[in-house]
Design a protein around this nucleic acid. Structure first.
Lengths: 212, 212
DNA sequence: CATCTAATTAGAAAAATATCTAATTAGATT
DNA sequence: AATCTAATTAGATATTTTTCTAATTAGATG
């Protein structure tokens, strides 16, 4: 559900009233009445906006008697503002089109540079056959993650996959799709909910860092 | 019109379809048909989304024969993702509440630290009387800007002011409001459109950098 | 110039969003 | 228990947004 989270965050910032609220909170916490007064809106409107900001992880609140003070969650903000950049950075490394490029897009694809570091590329080459099959699942954790990351890059960010689709995808690389699918989830490359799988770009990115 | 610009940017990122488009463009430019195909939507839908992304300065396009390729505007993205953080940073320095704090918020206000550097504070003190009047407009550009920045911090980000309101505000500091109002605009602290004034936080912030 | 392709515009329908008023709830305080 | 205060919920309305189909436009190209 990572796409949703990212979208929720930016959507929360995509409203002038909420941005003004945040600018006020930058001066220190304020309660609902104060915000309503300064902005010239009614308390229910504040409740509405604060719910959005809270859901996005942008503010948190603390109660003092009957009054609820809202605080900027600065660390969360700083982290999340970057989210889209992380997604794009990760998307750049995707090999999907390199592997299955059709005539239409080939020349454009060729213009770009892969983002994958040379030593990671080396690990990958050593575990894949020339036609892209996985010889074996690396035993060493670090190498295993490099290979998984490579494999998972062929999946599309933000798309929901049925288990069957994941199996078929993995089978391009290795027959033991069940093990690998489980590993994907265990290592947080994918997220599973009610039998539906989705890429987890945030975690993947954190992993990419760790591998360097 | 800076608030609008910021909101337009984040709003553009607040839609799952658009985020997926961006993830695809991170691999290199694509044309409308290709995007429509990959996403399973119709061309008009792509036109709609690309207009939003273009307005937000997130993509640009280049034509080749009948085909229009969309490119990620990465530099713009990187700069603009930070925008909200800049606004908040600037808002923190606002002295409005220090100067006019009412009983209600005083203790909270006291908890926070001013962001204004010590040497800037020194310049300000030397040009203001104890009751907050401006003795004279500094002749030295750098000092003048420090004082203007201080003054302008009492105005509210994102709010539209009539000329009369600006005059009244400035008169707290100095009788020659006309000169100072003109200076505010000339130095890009404020933005003027059809007789309505609004703070220009982006420029102000750039200025704050320059002063350090 | 007739035709093809990709993109855009127009216009409609459905969904989501922002905001208000009125009513209700959750916690203090008397 | 009765009363206050701040916040929330419910429900209504106006606006904005997403997406579609059908029609139109802008450029190439035979």
């Amino acid at each position: 559900m990572q796409l949703d989270k990212l979208v929720t965050f930016y959507k929360a910032l995509g409203d002038p009233t909420r941005v003004r609220i945040l600018a006020m909170l930058a001066n220190g916490p304020l309660h609902g009445q104060a915000l309503a007064g300064k902005l010239g809106v009614t308390p229910p409107t504040i409740t509405h906006h604060m719910a959005k900001l809270r859901d996005a992880g942008i503010v948190y609140e603390r109660r003092d008697k009957n009054t609820i003070y809202f605080y900027l969650h600065e660390a969360n903000m700083k982290r999340q503002t970057q989210a889209i950049l992380n997604v794009l950075e990760r998307a750049k490394g995707t090999m999907e089109e390199d592997l299955f490029a059709d005539e239409e897009t080939k020349t454009i694809q060729e213009q770009r540079r892969s983002q994958m570091a040379a030593d990671q590329m080396h690990v990958i080459k050593s575990f894949l056959t020339p036609d892209g099959k996985l010889k074996q699942i690396p035993a060493q954790r670090k190498k295993k993650l490099i290979v998984f990351e490579y494999m998972v890059r062929g999946l599309e960010f933000g798309r929901k996959y049925k288990e069957q689709e994941i199996n078929d995808y993995i089978r391009q690389f290795h027959d033991d799709y069940a093990t690998i699918r489980r590993e994907f989830v265990m290592n947080h490359y994918m997220y599973r909910e009610e039998g539906i799988y989705e890429l987890n770009p945030e975690e993947m990115w954190a992993k990419a860092e760790e591998l360097r």
